[in-house]
């Protein structure tokens, strides 16, 4: 592995000041992704800034009536095991459990999974299906960005240098959701296609249909959502297929990805709309 320096700031202010002085520095959270990328020579940071000592990045709490605030450093294992998440947003626990292995889940963080901006990130479709917002520390202040506006391309987000993802906010957990991760292997695999469908548990369903791994970023499919709100599941599936822009890669071909979106959206929709 290439050589780099290591910093371990205790606060967000200190972190941004390190980042300002070290343009080649990269944030280190769980490290399960970044250390692999360094090993493979994909990135060559001059410094890793370990943010795990910053207390406000940790913790899961209730906000407002039905909301949740999930600190960016919440590990995938915490998502799996935490009672607030399990009770109020079980789909997020399930998505986290589907990822990697326990050794990695014990280290990997939700903030890392979101900020790395993989089109196949498993926590993202559920978060998008809950209209999550991202809390970002910027210019000594906190701003909020809807998760749907966060991703710009594979590995790219609107996050500026010197900005830090601090928490994920789920404004209203009163939704029923189902995530299906389609993989070749039953574990230790990355989604070939990910589908999350959600609906409000009370009142009009206001559904969400989110697809992962079939476009440069995870995508919502408003047309499919519209069909679902009209109870037209087959049409919603077709709309989801139309919206996908998958590629061929080692995990699946584009045409196969297109082929399975239909049944997966159908299954997720039935799971959510079943009485």
């Amino acid at each position: 592995m290439i050589q780099f320096e290591y910093g371990c700031p205790g606060s967000l202010m200190e972190t941004t000041s390190i980042l300002r002085n070290n343009p080649e520095a990269v944030l280190l959270a769980g490290g399960t992704d970044i250390l692999v990328r360094i090993k493979q020579g994909m990135i060559q940071p001059a410094m890793l800034v370990d943010i795990k000592s910053i207390t406000e990045l940790h913790g899961i709490s209730s906000i407002e009536q039905n909301g949740l605030r999930i600190g960016a450093l919440t590990t995938l294992t915490e998502l799996v095991e935490n009672d607030l998440i399990r009770n109020r947003c079980p789909v997020l626990s399930a998505a986290a459990l589907s990822m990697a292995c326990v050794q990695v889940r014990n280290r990997a963080t939700i903030g890392g999974n979101v900020a790395n901006a993989s089109p196949a990130a498993d926590t993202v479709p559920p978060l998008m299906a809950f209209d999550a917002e991202l809390e970002i520390f910027a210019d000594e202040d906190i701003k909020r960005v809807p998760i749907g506006e966060f991703f710009t391309a594979p590995g790219e987000t609107v996050l500026q240098e010197n900005e830090i993802l601090t928490a994920i906010l789920i404004p209203d957990t009163a939704r029923k959701a189902h995530y299906i991760k389609h993989t070749l292997r039953e574990a230790m695999d990355i989604a070939g296609v990910g589908v999350c469908v959600s609906r409000k548990t009370q009142g009009a369903p206001d559904p969400r249909v989110v697809l992962g791994a079939v476009a440069p970023t995870p995508i919502r499919v408003p047309a499919a959502e519209q069909f679902l709100s009209e109870g037209k599941i087959e049409e919603a599936c077709a709309a989801a297929v139309d919206a996908a822009r998958p590629i061929d890669d080692v995990r699946a071909s584009a045409s196969y990805r297109k082929d399975v979106i239909y049944p997966l959206v159908k299954r997720a929709s039935y799971a959510v709309f079943a009485r």
Binding site: L28, G31, T32, L35, L48, Q103, R107
Partner: peptide
């Protein structure tokens, strides 16, 4: 007490 891949953790961490 937690299982961790020791190849994915820096010693400084």
């Amino acid at each position: 007490g937690q299982a961790v891949s020791s190849c994915l953790m820096l010693a400084v961490e």
